[in-house]
């Protein structure tokens, strides 16, 4: 799955950085184990030696992992800094999670069940739950944030390519949890503006209609 946001690229970098180091160490440990088992196998009548330890080795294999994990921590932390500081000019959409659907409310009151956003523009999603805990998850953008009933969380992204991507609920929320999917549709700037204008007009008409009905 290709990364499709600025944030996704930093996540992928940190991920492969850690996977690379881990894989190397795992291979090293495994090869050593297998090599020792064959080389010092009892069938070869080797004589065992009581080696109680080696301080230099202990220091080496404490210090090196500390340095490596600090490096991993650094990339994870830096990437996260980016996610926790949305640009001030970000477009804001409010999303409500409820059992078992997502709704999106734009700044003019327009409400949709699919998230439409323009490409290459920072979008900040304010997250709130109408009932139990949910979690707002867009795999293609590598972002996730819990959606809670008593506090407002947010998440932001800048989509780099147009297209349609899945939004899932990642916090277990009952019977239809696995069907709580929605889509984010990333449109070119002009198409997005057109969609927003049309959708808002329709909404105004429908809200006028309902007002008239009420009267």
């Amino acid at each position: 799955m290709f990364p499709n946001s600025t944030y996704a690229e930093s996540v992928d970098f940190a991920f492969w950085f850690i996977v690379g180091i881990s894989f190397t160490l795992l291979v090293l440990i495994t090869i050593l184990m297998i090599y020792f088992v064959f080389k010092y196998n009892r069938k070869k009548q080797v004589k065992a030696e009581n080696i109680h330890g080696n301080l230099t080795l202990e220091i080496v294999w404490t210090v090196i992992p500390v340095l490596l994990t600090l490096g991993m921590f650094y990339y994870g932390w830096m990437g996260y800094q980016d996610l926790s500081n949305p640009p001030s000019d970000a477009m804001v959409v409010k999303s409500t999670g409820q059992m078992w659907k997502w709704t999106y409310e734009y700044n003019n009151g327009l409400v949709t069940d699919t998230l439409f956003v323009p490409v290459n523009r920072a979008v900040k999603i304010d997250l709130v739950s109408a009932d139990v805990n949910h979690s707002f998850f867009i795999p293609a953008f590598r972002i996730k944030r819990d959606v809670l009933p008593n506090r407002e969380n947010f998440v932001w992204f800048k989509a780099e390519n147009t297209g349609s991507f899945d939004i899932a609920c990642a916090e277990y929320c009952g019977l239809q949890h696995s069907y709580m999917y929605s889509k984010v549709v990333v449109l070119p700037e002009n198409e997005y503006d057109l969609w927003f204008k049309n959708a808002s007009e329709k909404k105004d008409i429908s809200s006028t209609d309902s007002t008239q009905t009420l009267n």
Partner: peptide, 16 residues
């Protein structure tokens, strides 16, 4: 090792 992957904050946001 996969615990380390999840300990990294940015990556955790994706695989949590």
């Amino acid at each position: 090792f996969t615990g380390l992957i999840q300990g990294a904050l940015s990556v955790n946001m994706h695989i949590h």
